[in-house]
Design a protein around this nucleic acid. Sequence first.
DNA 1: TACGTGATCACG
DNA 2: GTGATCACGTAA
Length: 190
Amino acid sequence: MKLPVEYYQNENVTDIARHLVGKRLVTGLNKQLTSGIIVETEAYSYRERGCHAYRGMTPRNEVMFGQGGVAYIYLCYGIHHLFNVVTHRAGYAEAVLIRALEPCAGEDVMMARTGSPLDRITSGPGKLTKAMGLTTALNGIALTANTVWLEDDGWHGQTLARKRIGIDYAGHDAHLPWRFVMKANRWVSR
DNA sequence: TACGTGATCACG
DNA sequence: GTGATCACGTAA
């Protein structure tokens, strides 16, 4: 069951990040279906220094300022495309970074896209976008369409909160427990 | 632990 | 224009 646009417009981005663990991310690019269960997420808000939107709107982060339910995809370190789900209403720039997946379907396609063995293609935010075919060309795309979307897979289990990774520049906000991981899942990054 | 990588952004 | 920076991944 595909998540409806209302799901993304909740005003509490950490609640969404927590509850996206266990959901299924699906892409249907070039008639090739690939999917994976989300096992790791991070929440970002314009209210804290870890977020691209903390210092206001720029050309890169513009879609974060629109309404929830679209993809925010940007290039990181010149190499990696990172995939986020935009949340909240227009004007409130918040998003959830998808950091790791447990492959679910289309593993052969994922391996062809990455040239890597299955056990190391989706356990990190830069790796999973390559496996799923997500690039900045899809920035701003609606998650209610049939290209990239999320589904409720009926999973319910234990989700743990941790510090976010790779945002030491954010000062005390780097310590916020806004990273969510599926307990005891081997696909979680690092 | 170190560093490649190139778009992005805040300066002028 | 220019230079510092960066929500990573890999090798070692």
